[in-house]
Design a protein around this nucleic acid. Sequence first.
DNA 1: CCTGCTGATTCATTTGAAGTGATTTGAAAT
DNA 2: ATTTCAAATCACTTCAAATGAATCAGCAGG
Lengths: 293, 293
Amino acid sequence: MQLKSLRIFREVARTGSFVAAAELLHTVQSNVTAHIKKLEEELDAKLIERHGAVRLTSAGQALIQYSESILSAHDEALSLFRKNASPRGRLRIGAMETTTALRLPPILAKFHKAHPEVDIELHTGPTADLIKGMMAGQHDCIFVAGKVNHPRLHQFRAFDEQLVLVSGRHMDKMPAPQELQTATFLAFRQGCSYRQRIELLLATHGVHATRIFDFGTLDAMLGCVAAGMGYAILPSMTVEAHRHRFEVHSYPLPEEIGQVTTYYAVPEMDTWTPAMTAFADVLRRATDAQVFT
Amino acid sequence: MQLKSLRIFREVARTGSFVAAAELLHTVQSNVTAHIKKLEEELDAKLIERHGAVRLTSAGQALIQYSESILSAHDEALSLFRKNASPRGRLRIGAMETTTALRLPPILAKFHKAHPEVDIELHTGPTADLIKGMMAGQHDCIFVAGKVNHPRLHQFRAFDEQLVLVSGRHMDKMPAPQELQTATFLAFRQGCSYRQRIELLLATHGVHATRIFDFGTLDAMLGCVAAGMGYAILPSMTVEAHRHRFEVHSYPLPEEIGQVTTYYAVPEMDTWTPAMTAFADVLRRATDAQVFT
DNA sequence: CCTGCTGATTCATTTGAAGTGATTTGAAAT
DNA sequence: ATTTCAAATCACTTCAAATGAATCAGCAGG
C-alpha cells in the first residue's frame, strides 16, 4: 500500500469520479484505475462500486477512515519541515543555572510569543552535563560557559559575564590569601565551569586546596552566602538581579579570570529543525551583534 | 515521502545500524542508504548522524514521531483487512422494527461476545427505507421482509414469520368483511412491508379502503391495539413476546398471505469488511440451516 | 604509524513498477 | 438503435527502486 494510492483513493471517494480525481491530482484516468485496482488486489476487497455512480463499498468506507489519518499525519510531517512555515514541535534547550535564571527568560518569552506552536523544554545543568547530553541527543541546543572543543558543534558567543566574588560581608578589596585559604566556597554541583574559576582564583593567590560545597540551585547558594557560610563566584548580573532578595556583597574578580563568555552551541545547521532555526533567529536579534559572527 | 522509506528510517533509528536495518527488512544496505538519502533530500535536513555510532539528529527525532503515527495507522489498516484476523471496526446493520425487537438481540449478543472489537450500529426502519439506505451506502447489511428485486444484492432467508391479526378483543375466527371494512388498522410508518399485507388481507375479503394509522414503534402500536383502537398485523412471535405486557388477542392469517420470510440482504461478498464476514458466520450458525443455501 | 576490520557510500546495471495515450467496453440517456 | 460519457484495458515509455561490486571512512590493535 502506497501513500500515492491512498491519496488517489481518497480523491476518488471525495469527487465520486475517476476522471475528476485524475485531473485534480495531475495524472491520467488510466493511472487512477490502476492505483485503485492495486489497492483492491492488495486488500483483496472491492473498495469502489462503479455502476453508474461511483460509490464506496463497506470495505471502502472502512479504508477511507484510515486513509484520512495516515494522509493527515503525512501532510503534517511534511509541513513541519517546510521552510518558511511557522515552526511547530519540540525545542529542547539545555542551559546553565545562571543562564536560565538571568538571560533566558526574556528570550524565551519573546520566542514563545513569536512561535506559540513550539513546545519549549528547558533542561538545566552544569556545562559538562549539558555537553554530554547534547552528544547523546537529549538537547537540541545548549548554553555553556567557554568554548567546547568538539568538531561538528557550532558555537556562537551569546553572553559575556563578569564574575564577582560574593560574600555575606562587605569587601572593599580582594580578601587576603590566608583568608581565602581557610574560607569555604559554595559552587554548583560537579561539572559547573564557574567552579573551575574558584580553583583558578585560589591558584593565582598561591593557595591550593580549600573546602568547596556543592549546591543545586542558585537560591540555596545565595541564601547560604548571605548567611555567612562562605564565598561564591557568580556572574555579576546574576548577583545584581537577586540583590533585593539576599543581602550579599560582591567584589569583581581580576580581568583575566573574571571574564567568562557563555556560548550558544548547536550541531551543524543542516540537522536543525525549523524550531531551532527560528530560535537562533530570535537569539540573534536578542543578543544583537554578539552572536553568529 | 514513501511508506517504505519511513519504515527503513524507523528501523535504522531503532537498531542504530544500516546493516542491521537492511537485514531485518530483507534488503541490502546500499538500498537503506539510498532511502535515507532520499528522505533527507526531500526534507532538506540531515536526519541521521553517521560518525561512529549512528544517531538521530534533532530533525531525525522530530520525524521519527510522525513516522510512528503514520506507520502504526498503516499497519492497523492492513490488519483490518487481513483475513483470519479478529475483525475490528464498524458494522452497520439495518433491520425492521419487529426483527430488531425479537430476532436480533440474541444474535447481536452472540456476535458481540465473539468479536468485542466491532462497533455495532443498529439502524431501525421500514423495509423500503432500509433498501434505499443500503443503496446509498448507509448500511453494511439489512434484514428486510420479502425478496428484494435488485441485482448485486445477495439475499438469504433468515427468519420465517407467521403473521397474525392482533386485536384488543378475543377472536375465535377471522372477523367478518363488514367488520374489517369499518375497522381502523395500525401499521408502521410508510414503507413497512407488513402494511402491504393489510391491503392484501382486505382485498381477499373484497374490501377496498380503510383507515390506516401510522406508528413509529412497536410499543405504541401494541398499546393502542390493547386499548381497542383497532387491528394490527404482526409476526406471531413478536406478539407472543409482548403478551405479558399488553393484553392483546391474535388470530393467525390464512397461509397464503400470513407467511412472511425475513431476508438477510448484503452486497456482493468481495465488498465485505471482515466484520461483515464474521457477522454472516454468526448469523448462519444462529439460524441454522435456513440461511446461505 | 601502519594495518585490518567493520560499516556506510558510490556507482553501474538490472529489474520492475508507475505513468501515458489510444482504444475498447459498458451503462445510461435519447 | 444510437449517442454519449466514464471506466477498463493494453501496448509502450519512462523513471525509480533494488542489487552487487567497489570504494571510502572511522576505529581498534599491534
